[in-house]
Structure formats: structure tokens, C-alpha cells
Amino acid sequence: MTAIQIEKLSVTEKIQVMESLWDSLCTHADNINSPAWHSEVLQQREEMLNDGTDTFIDWNDAKKDIRNQLP
């Protein structure tokens, strides 16, 4: 499917395609390797949690913060 074909889809159809892609990726997740930087970022974040320079926030609060940052 090309970008032009995707652009012609309705929102509902786009969501269905996205869900199909996600399902396919999840089915074959064992074959997907995370990039090297991902492990490094996770390690840095764990260290920040352990030394108290970072904390978790409630998911609903995080979504509100993200929405407030959008134009």
C-alpha cells in the first residue's frame, strides 16, 4: 500500500489498517530486534529512577501534560 493509497482511506479504514499492522508486528515480535540505543535509554532511565532524579507519574496525568503541550 502506498502513501497515496493510504491518504485516500477514510479514518475508519486507516485505523483498521493500523490495527492489522500492529497485530502482524505483535504476532512476529520475537523476530523484531530493538535498536541498540533503546537498551541504553532504558538503562539511563532506570539509573535516574534509582538515584531519585526521575519519577513515575500517573498515566492520566501524563496524557493531560501531553495534550497541554499540543497547539
Rank of each mutant, 00 (worst) to 15 (best):
E47F: 00
D61C: 05
T2A: 03
S34M: 12
V17D: 02
T12H: 03
W37C: 07
I57V: 14
A62W: 09
W22A: 10
E13K: 05
S20R: 03
D51P: 08
N68I: 03
A62C: 11
A3Y: 00
M18F: 01
T12M: 05
T12L: 05
V41R: 14
P35C: 09
I15K: 06
N68C: 04
Q44K: 14
W22T: 11
D51Y: 03
R45P: 04
M48F: 01
I4F: 01
H38P: 03
L25A: 15
P71N: 11
P35R: 14
A29Y: 05
D23A: 09
E19A: 10
S24Y: 00
S20H: 04
N60Y: 03
I57C: 11
I32M: 08
N50A: 15
A3K: 13
I66R: 08
M48I: 01
I57G: 07
E40A: 15
I66S: 06
R67H: 04
L25N: 11
V41D: 13
E46N: 13
H28I: 05
A62Q: 09
Q69I: 05
I6D: 04
A3W: 00
I66E: 05
L70R: 06
K8A: 06
W37K: 09
T53S: 15
A36R: 12
Q16M: 04
I15H: 03
S34D: 14
T12Q: 07
T27W: 00
T55P: 03
W59T: 12
L49V: 10
K63V: 15
V41S: 09
M18K: 07
A29E: 14
D61T: 13
L9I: 03
T2I: 03
V41T: 14
C26F: 01
G52R: 11
L21G: 05
Q44T: 12
S20Q: 07
